[in-house]
Nucleic acid binder design. Structure first.
Lengths: 215, 215
DNA sequence: AGCTAAATTAATCGAATGATGAACCACGCC
DNA sequence: GGCGTGGTTCATCATTCGATTAATTTAGCT
């Protein structure tokens, strides 16, 4: 499994295969779940031999965790960059822009929600890892923002822990179910029109509009 | 595969195993998806031999469809019974009660949403079957109800085809992700308190409150 | 340039999967 | 009450899966 605690620099090509394997794994795991995805298909999608998987990651389980790491890395990066430019901006605007960013992320990376859904259905060691390592930290960041809203006296939609999953579901379900949406409604959730309408709907549903701050 | 176009009455025990297999299949497919679930585990969960599956259903694929049939049957039954008692009641109250019923159904049968999610991730013959046979008919029933709301001039949340999936996601995500919710927040989405709070939140989010009709 | 460790692949293994067919059992029907 | 079909299981097959191993190629280091 590449246990080389050694002095040599990793080859460039190796980093590339690793990256391509992770990307392919994200897609496969998101589509078919942990048990439904096969390392062979993942490797084929990445253009390498199946045995490259246990070499680079040791185990299908560890490949899955690397994929989760990659996905949440993208989300952290994106939301972090958004938050970084908002120092000092009022809470309501911050929340609005953050939610907008989240909607666009869900549209750009529907795999994240699918990935979590695939693992969220039953208790498992993988789920515990996911929650402890990524979900809880992410949630506590958002908690700060939304607590600020409540302190404004706006109509809070409810306790944070509850709103959290309702919001996630409302935002990302059209993307997690994109193929079904297309079949059932004929609309394309990834079109710019849909994304804008969806953003607007989410803002209207979840961000209280204080009497003065509209516009 | 039980191709008996014949005269004999089916034995009582056969119907029972069929039913138990379907119930087990619903659980397994909802948890692990089509490819992740195994007919052996399903049979074991139902207390019969693995070969009983191909006997009764012919194919894993057909077993899956039977499971979908069963799930949507439950939903139709429940919503149908609710609607039957509401003839002549005003649209807003109808919508409120229907949504309440849907929340309680999502809590009682989280497998439905999980089942749909598992199959909604990629195009497949199974997805086409699901949409054509169950999703579209179900949606067109609801469409009638919500079109009535718009005609009242209440603040419509948006076009039906869009609201549809947002609502589904908001309502059922806490239940589809119940194990994760428990791990991350310590709350139990199936507790009566949570269900009531969730119902209230869904009503507040999705049913417009006309100036007069509150209470 | 040459040595050597790292990276990749091909070959293979044991376990699990879905399906088939034969043997056995049980129940509806007359 | 026993005949016969419907129902169930057991044994088995071909396939697929994840992982291990050995052999081969690639590239970092001096």
């Amino acid at each position: 499994m590449m246990n080389h605690a050694s002095t040599r620099r990793p080859q460039r090509r190796a980093l590339e295969t690793r990256a391509r394997l992770i990307e392919a794994a994200i897609g496969e795991f998101a589509e078919k779940g942990f048990e439904g995805a096969s390392t062979g298909e993942i490797a084929s999608r990445a253009g390498v031999a199946q045995s490259a998987v246990p070499y680079h990651f040791g185990t299908k389980d560890l490949l899955w965790k690397a994929a989760g790491e990659g996905l949440f890395g993208l989300l952290r990066e994106r939301l972090g960059a958004r938050l970084a430019g908002l120092d000092g901006v009022d809470v309501l605007t911050t929340a609005r822009l953050l939610l907008t960013e989240f909607v666009r992320f869900a549209a750009a990376h529907p795999e994240l929600h699918r990935f979590m859904l695939q693992e969220g259905t039953g208790p498992s060691e993988r789920l515990e890892w996911l929650v402890a390592k990524h979900v809880v930290p992410m949630a506590s960041v958002l908690e700060g923002v939304f607590q600020g809203i409540e302190s404004l006296g706006g109509p809070s939609p409810g306790p944070m822990t509850h709103v959290f999953y309702v919001l996630i579901g409302a935002v990302s379900t059209p993307y997690a179910l994109a193929p079904q949406v297309r079949l059932a409604t004929g609309e394309d959730p990834f079109s710019e029109d849909y994304i804008e309408a969806h953003t607007e709907m989410m803002l209207r549903l979840f961000i209280p509009s204080l009497p003065d701050s509209d516009g």
